[in-house]
Amino acid sequence: MTEYKLVVVGAGGVGKSALTIQLIQNHFVDEYDPTIEDSYRKQVVIDGETCLLDILDTAGQEEYSAMRDQYMRTGEGFLCVFAINNTKSFEDIHHYREQIKRVKDSEDVPMVLVGNKCDLPSRTVDTKQAQDLARSYGIPFIETSAKTRQGVDDAFYTLVREIRKHKEKMSKDGKKKKKKSKTKCVIM
């Protein structure tokens, strides 16, 4: 069974824990209790493949930012979460993405942009803004509501699919490099 290491990042209060708990335990946590770091595991079937999701729910508070490099190193894919009623959390996505790329030393890291709290009427981040940002990053965008469960499975499952595509691409690139290195030079 394939294991996928997913990391949920975003500013404090955007609903990272609520999304994760909704996926794992099928219930909505409405009281806000700032996370330092929590880890969850769940076995699911995605596109006919049974897999184990190892999900790291991270601290959004700035005082825990020193811990970010460590979990970013171990993560295979990242859910970059903002709240649709919090423009600052949307603007912060850029910083999370840049930090992930720096730590992973790669421009090509599996990510999904997630606009959470889409059940709320007080939207300050337009869907088109988020779609445009995701398009500019070359990553999928999904709106979710941890409260109603809308888009929750889709967000995590899409990230797994992005990781699969990335692994497939990397193995193809690896095979191309191996083929090239088999060419021999004969000096007579």
Rank of each mutant, 00 (worst) to 15 (best):
R149C: 15
F141H: 05
E62W: 02
I142D: 08
E107L: 11
E98W: 01
P110N: 04
G13I: 07
D173F: 14
I21G: 15
H27R: 04
D57R: 00
T20I: 04
K182L: 09
I21Y: 13
E3V: 07
V7R: 09
P121Y: 06
I142Y: 08
Y32H: 10
F82D: 04
D173H: 06
R161V: 13
V81E: 12
Y71V: 00
K16M: 01
C51L: 13
M67V: 01
L120S: 11
V160P: 03
G15H: 04
T183V: 04
F156A: 03
Y64E: 00
Y4L: 15
S136Q: 13
G77F: 05
K176G: 10
V103D: 03
S122W: 06
V109Y: 04
F156V: 06
P34C: 03
R164L: 12
G13E: 14
R41K: 10
I46F: 09
Q22C: 04
T35S: 02
H94R: 14
F28S: 02
I46P: 13
G115I: 08
V103I: 12
G60D: 00
K88I: 07
Q129L: 07
M72T: 02
Q25C: 13
V112Y: 12
K5A: 06
I36Y: 02
A66G: 08
I21F: 11
I139Q: 04
C51T: 10
L19N: 15
V125K: 10
V9Q: 03
S145M: 09
S39K: 03
L159V: 06
Y32K: 00
K16Y: 02
E76H: 05
V186K: 04
A18Q: 12
K169H: 06
C185L: 07
L113V: 09
T74Y: 11
P121C: 07
I84E: 15
K172R: 07
Q43N: 13
V109A: 05
Y32M: 02
E31S: 06
M111K: 02
P34R: 01
V114W: 02
S181H: 09
K88Q: 10
K42V: 09
K184D: 15
I21H: 15
K182N: 03
D92L: 06
M72G: 01
V44W: 08
Q43A: 10
I21K: 05
I24V: 07
V103H: 04
K117W: 14
D154C: 05
V8L: 09
K178E: 12
V114A: 04
L23S: 13
V114G: 01
K104I: 12
Q22Y: 04
A11R: 09
T144R: 03
R41C: 10
L159S: 02
G75D: 00
T158Q: 11
F82S: 13
E63H: 04
A146L: 04
I21V: 10
C51K: 12
R135P: 05
I187Y: 11
L79W: 02
Q129I: 12
E91S: 14
M188G: 14
G15P: 03
C51Y: 12
H27F: 11
G12K: 07
Q70L: 01
K178G: 10
F156W: 06
E91F: 06
H166D: 11
K178H: 13
V103Q: 02
V44C: 12
R164N: 11
K101V: 11
K167M: 10
S65L: 05
K104R: 13
I55R: 00
F156T: 04
G10A: 11
S145L: 04
L133Q: 07
K178C: 10
H166V: 11
G13D: 13
Y157Q: 11
I84C: 13
K177N: 05
E63Y: 06
V112A: 05
T158L: 09
E37K: 01
G48F: 05
Q43R: 14
T20P: 00
E37N: 01
R123M: 12
K88A: 09
T74P: 02
L79V: 06
L79F: 03
T50N: 12
H27W: 10
V29P: 12
A66L: 04
L159H: 01
V29E: 12
N26L: 04
N26E: 14
H95M: 04
R68K: 03
T124C: 09
D54I: 01
N116L: 15
K42N: 10
I24G: 05
E49S: 12
K176T: 14
A155Y: 14
Q129E: 10
V14R: 14
P110Q: 02
N26W: 11
V44M: 15
G138D: 05
D119L: 13
S17G: 01
C185M: 15
T35Q: 00
E107I: 07
V29Y: 05
T20F: 00
L56M: 04
G115A: 13
I84F: 12
R97W: 15
V112C: 08
T20C: 07
K5T: 06
A18M: 08
L19F: 10
N116T: 15
G15V: 01
R164S: 09
G12Y: 10
Q129S: 10
E98S: 05
V114Q: 03
L53R: 03
Y71G: 01
K88R: 12
N116S: 13
K117H: 14
R149W: 15
I163F: 05
E143I: 04
T35K: 00
I36G: 01
T158R: 06
K169G: 10
L23Q: 14
A134V: 10
G75R: 02
Q43D: 13
V81Q: 07
Q129V: 07
L120M: 11
Y4M: 15
K147M: 08
Y40E: 00
K16Q: 02
T183W: 05
S39W: 01
G48S: 10
E37M: 00
E76S: 04
T2I: 08
T35A: 00
F28D: 01
E37C: 00
V125P: 10
N86H: 04
A66C: 15
A11F: 14
K180M: 10
K16V: 00
G77R: 02
